[in-house]
Design a protein around this nucleic acid. Structure first.
Length: 801
RNA sequence: GGGCCGGUGGUCUAGUGGCAUGACGUCACCUUGACGCGGUGAAGGUCGAGAGUUCAAAUCUCUCCCGGCCCACCA
């Protein structure tokens, strides 16, 4: 018997130490059990770990624990995504430095220092939360092995003809902290109100046409004018020439179906480049190239007196000047959707530059087919993948003009310009500080290193191969690839999920994982994303300290898979109540279990069988839900069974038998039913179930930890009529409770006599439960007989006195 | 403009054809030998709107409205 209260902070700490010491979560390399491998998301080191992170990682963690109990050898690694733009931005802010002002190697060193710190912080919090990863399997995307495998991957795709270098228009972020090429997947939509400017262009014969544009600052880059071929108003213009105001260049008027006659004046100017239609026309009609915006979003010499101005400044001044010249005849407010960089919200520009690309846009059908080979949970999330693939219109630009990332294993010959690719056996290399091992084929021996680094997604897209130690002699590819499960958020389906499927298939010809579970986000109480700048971050540590890790995990388990979940402290408090309830139930039954070890078949009473019948159903349902990764529905079933069937009804009914101390049937029932309850709760309430397992079952059950014990299976099947009859008994007990309540009598007040009036079948069934009704209602006497009133839904009538 | 997800008592939520689930909150009663962080009850919903299919619709179909997300070349 134990009497102490539950001290979550102390006990959770003890349990963590126990798990560590006994290596409970270690992946066993030589083991016959089937493997369940998880492609854990490597979090970006961003300096703020909030309950939203805790939620998504907990949800994958529930599945890891469930699978472990199902007898799988679980491969559950942890990674850290600690390079690339987000990390640079983080480090620049934390240290208040700017990468551009520092030597490259010094900046990289600082980044490494800062990310180490961030990783320690993550590790500490994940341990507090009880995330059951095997920390021996940790990787970081900037470590030697990841640099090697990432460069290897690049060379492999280069050799396969999937990687190419090309000078072409590219989406570019001109933000002073970015100044890099970005990929289609990194763009977001942004709606804003802007001015549509109606501008007069002169024709050769001094006639005038009016063109509507939102970007007058691009006038110096204007290389053509288009009208719709079916637009009768402008048919006569086709093939003639116009002069761009202020800048004076002469441009041809052409026709194209893409022009919407109803937008603006129905006449469009093409600039290199204002948007993707410009690029399309530029390619299709082989137009001149006039780039007027530079890498930092300023106008260059082509803009004449406007040179050096930012886009916004130039727009303002050029508009002013047009107005002065009488060329601007109208300005209208319109709503405009434009592409912005997802990291900083800056409108992207199109520049021409030389970048490295992975060819993906020609294989849309393949990507869709691979998507079909993977099981999506919840199934509807596959739509997002399909939509994205269908909308793909460019290849994947993987070079970034940044500092802290994985370098390309590439040099260029300074004489003939030939591309020199490093030898696979020399990886990882940094072309900035290392040279090719032999001269160029042209005989020259001086090289220019590729200065760009790779898009972080290019590395994180091969996490299944990183986990498999692909490229190493002693690898796990046959063992764990394709991996069993990819858990990840819905916001990165177009990036992480898609790129992983694409790259891994290009390398191996196989899908990267058999299933993907897509989790929602933990939001602030008002349903908004948590972010430092909004000041609405709820910190993991605080909540764990106030409630407990188990209570926070319970909150995480309350969201259906894929749904976003606003953080409500009352939900965590609800988890706390269940934990306390479990502890107190254990207190009550500890006497019966502590010195008891079932070793033979016992004749059970009907109410005991009733409990097992209910339990069987819960085990079935919970298992079914877990197989679909629906931990939340599973938990709801378990919770309902534990709280109501087990505590409110069964325990109340058998209390006297517990106190008697020598009822073998009740001991047997409590031993196994409570063990099952603990196991069913174990994936969610990982700590308290472990503690109670050790307190009550240690030395009796085979495994030292509940988390490696077997998932509960159905008990012996009893005649289903017992469940029905037991339910009738509960119905009668409830009625008597209400009867007492209506008379403001205490529930434990004694009754003189209960008379039950029912049909023959009910009477036969209830006979087995009369004692239970008697003790639960404190009736001195109970009998069958004729009753006039008090009819229950089942038709039974009760007389109470 | 297209797609996906959602709209259920004050708040949140389960529920894909058959009397609307639970939590939190509210109110009342019960100081029951595990738990008052408890027990027992009560009040509270025309299940976003409309139409249709059906003996029967929160659930299926259509239209519309609202919210969120994803996608799209409208200058």
């Amino acid at each position: 018997m134990f009497t102490e209260n539950y001290n979550a902070e102390k006990i959770e700490k003890e349990i963590h130490d126990f798990w560590d010491e006994n290596k409970i979560f270690e992946f066993k390399f030589n083991d016959k059990r089937p493997i369940f491998s998880i492609d854990t998301p490597p979090p970006t080191i961003s300096g703020m770990i909030h309950v939203g992170h805790a939620m998504s990682y907990s949800q994958a963690e529930f599945i890891a624990r469930y699978k472990r109990m199902r007898g799988f050898n679980v491969f559950y690694p942890m990674g850290f995504d600690d390079n690339g733009l987000p990390t640079e931005r983080y480090v620049e802010n934390v240290r208040n430095i700017r990468a551009v002002n520092l030597p490259r190697d010094e900046f990289i060193k600082i980044c490494l220092e800062e990310t180490r710190k961030g990783e320690e912080e993550f590790k500490e919090i994940w341990k507090l939360l009880g995330i059951s990863v095997d920390w021996n399997l940790t990787y970081s995307t900037i470590d030697d092995f990841c640099r090697k495998i990432s460069q290897f991957s690049f060379i492999d795709l280069y050799e396969k003809g999937r990687v190419y270098r090309a000078e072409s228009p590219i989406t570019w972020c001109p933000n002073s902290q970015c100044k890099t090429a970005v990929a289609q997947a990194e763009l977001e939509d942004f709606k804003r109100i802007t001015k549509l400017n109606y501008i007069k262009f002169k024709l050769e014969n001094n006639e005038e046409i009016v063109i509507a544009t939102t970007r007058p600052e691009l006038l110096p880059a204007c290389v053509g004018i288009f009208v719709n071929p079916n637009d009768k108003r402008y048919k006569k213009l086709i093939g003639r020439y116009a002069f761009v105001p202020i800048f004076g260049q002469k441009v041809k008027i052409m026709e194209d179906e893409l022009v919407d006659p109803n937008f603006g004046t129905g006449i469009v100017m093409v600039c290199t480049f204002g948007d993707s239609t410009d690029i399309e026309w530029w390619k299709k009609y082989n137009l001149e190239t006039k780039i007027v915006i530079d890498e930092s979003g300023k106008l260059n010499d082509l803009a004449g007196k406007y040179s050096g101005l930012t886009i916004e400044e130039a727009r303002k001044e050029i508009t002013e000047d047009l107005k002065k010249e009488g060329k601007l005849i109208e300005q209208k407010d319109i709503e405009q959707t434009l592409n912005v960089h997802e990291r900083c919200g800056t409108p992207i520009e199109y520049l021409i530059s030389k970048q490295w690309w992975i060819k993906i846009s020609d294989l849309k059908e393949k990507w869709l087919e691979l998507g079909n080979q993977i099981k999506w949970y919840p199934a509807s999330m596959k739509n997002r993948y399909d939509t994205w693939v269908n909308g793909l219109n460019t290849d994947w630009c993987i070079s970034r003009q940044r500092y802290y990332g994985i370098p390309f294993p590439v040099w260029y010959c300074k004489k003939c310009g030939k591309i020199i690719i490093a030898d696979k056996k020399d990886l990882p290399i940094d072309p900035f500080y290392q040279k090719p091992k032999k001269s160029c084929s042209c005989g020259y021996n001086d090289f220019e290193p590729e200065k760009s680094v790779m898009d972080t997604w290019a590395t994180s897209a091969i996490t299944p191969l990183i986990n498999s130690k692909w490229t190493e002699k002693e690898n796990l590819v046959d063992l764990i690839y394709p991996m069993s499960l990819r858990p990840q958020g819905h916001d990165i389906i177009r990036t992480w999920a898609f790129y992983t499927i694409a790259k891994c298939w290009l390398h191996t010809g196989k899908i990267p994982w058999n299933s993907i579970m897509v989790n929602g986000h933990g939001l602030d109480p008002h349903g908004k994303k948590m972010s430092k700048s909004k000041g609405n971050i709820v910190e993991v540590k605080e909540i764990i300290k106030k409630y407990s890790a188990d209570a926070l995990r319970y909150w995480a388990a309350s969201a259906k898979l894929g749904n976003d979940l606003p953080f409500k402290e009352q939900d965590v408090a609800r988890g706390q109540k269940i934990i306390i309830k479990l502890w107190n139930a254990a207190k009550l039954i500890s006497n019966s279990i502590e010195n008891y070890k079932p070793n033979r078949k016992i004749e059970l009473k009907s109410i005991d069988k009733w409990l097992f019948l209910k339990l069987n159903k819960v085990i079935n349902k919970a298992t079914e839900e877990y197989e679909k990764y629906e931990y939340s529905d599973a938990t709801a079933y378990v919770e309902n069974f534990f709280w109501h069937d087990f505590c409110d009804n069964y325990l109340e009914i058998v209390k006297q038998r517990i106190y008697n101390g020598n009822d073998e049937a009740v001991k047997y029932t409590l031993y196994y039913s409570f063990l099952s309850i603990l196991k069913l709760f174990a994936p969610i309430l990982a700590h308290i179930t472990e503690k109670l397992y050790q307190k009550l079952y240690s030395g009796k059950e085979k495994e030292i930890s509940i988390h490696i014990s077997n998932w509960p299976e159905e008990f012996e099947f009893f005649d289903e009529s017992i469940e029905r009859n037991g339910d009738l008994a509960i119905e009668i007990i409830s009625f008597i409770r209400k009867w007492k309540h209506d008379r403001k009598i205490a529930l434990n007040a004694e009754l003189n006599k209960i008379i039950i009036d029912c049909n023959f079948e009910q009477r036969e069934g209830l006979k087995e439960f009369l004692d239970d009704i008697k003790t639960a209602t404190k009736a001195k006497e109970i009998s069958f007989g004729y009753v006039r009133d008090n009819e229950l839904p089942s038709g039974i009538k009760i007389d109470i006195s």
